[in-house]
Design a binder for these strands. Structure first.
Lengths: 176, 176
DNA sequence: GTCTATATAGGGATAGAC
DNA sequence: GTCTATCCCTATATAGAC
């Protein structure tokens, strides 16, 4: 609380005056982060684009958002794992991640034999995993592969093109 | 410390007697977890298997290890992000993740035109991302896709086959 | 080595003046 | 609304008897 107050240029008493308690402050921060983040992601998920373009569009923009909020993912993950119930209470009146349209789109592509059969949920998780994971493993990746801060950012930026290529390569109907 | 002492069936004073400080206790726990984990992962990374089989072997066994230590990944990620310097000091005298052999193997496969050109580091990160990420996003995935605990574990187990299929589909030389 | 009792510090929270 | 001073509690850590 002291550190937060210092950074905000006020004192602890003021923090308590505004937010009543540390817990309430936390919830406010968390909610605020999500309020900003979720709508953007939903917009990407539900953009009106053909499947392959949508994957490219999603990954490119999602990674950009992640790079602007590089500490958010590990913050969210830590708190959610500490307190899984909080997720329910924080999201219950709000917009969640809306994956229905995207799932249907994937299933349609399978039916039309544009792509090989795949469970939409598995595909979506693969896509999100490849976007988010490197960001939260940042220090480990830098260590294992001997990257500088700059090299790491470069590495992530390359993934904007690399991940869609990787995914589309995998799912597109193979020539028989 | 009280909670740890209780679970260990001793008292706080004993904890301090053994470990000197909370910080030292933490380091001991962390080191212990890594000492157990890293050698197993290195073994999987350096198994003497052809590329595709190695990917299957790695993913299958890595996910099994993760399921046995389902809280470890988010614990490690949180602590490393809090304290990136600690990673260096904890690993400096120890075996790190050894990716050299695997990287060479991937490059060889590219040269022999067994697979499409790809940066080995990107491929390795993709693979690890798809394995670890769902485990640390567990509560969020359960919420978004309405899974029970049991359904989630089932979902992860399916990925033992799903991920290698997805990767190999992506990298294997396309028919021209 | 193991315990009880206690010192000490730090952080969340409030009282009360302005 | 904003500040200073202070309360209160908990958690780390130690002293010292056994």
């Amino acid at each position: 609380m002291q550190e937060i107050a210092d950074n905000a240029g006020i004192n602890k008493a003021m923090l308590h005056y505004y937010f009543r308690s540390k817990d309430k402050l936390f919830d406010a921060v968390f909610e605020d982060a999500l309020k900003d983040f979720l709508p953007k992601v939903n917009e990407l998920l539900n953009a009106e684009l053909p499947l392959f373009e949508k994957i490219e569009h999603f990954v490119e923009n999602y990674i950009s958002i992640l790079l602007e909020n590089i500490y958010l993912p590990s913050f969210i993950i830590y708190e959610i794992n500490q307190n899984p119930e909080k997720l329910t209470s924080l999201l219950k009146n709000k917009k969640d991640l809306h994956t229905e349209i995207f799932k249907r789109q994937i299933n349609d592509a399978v039916k039309k034999k544009l792509i090989d059969p795949i469970d939409p949920v598995q595909l979506i998780i693969n896509m999100i995993a490849m976007c988010i994971f490197p960001v939260i493993w940042k220090p480990i990746i830098m260590k294992i592969f001997g990257m500088s801060e700059k090299a790491f950012i470069e590495f992530i930026k390359l993934r904007k093109k690399e991940i869609p290529r990787f995914i589309i390569n995998s799912i597109k109907k193979s020539v028989k």
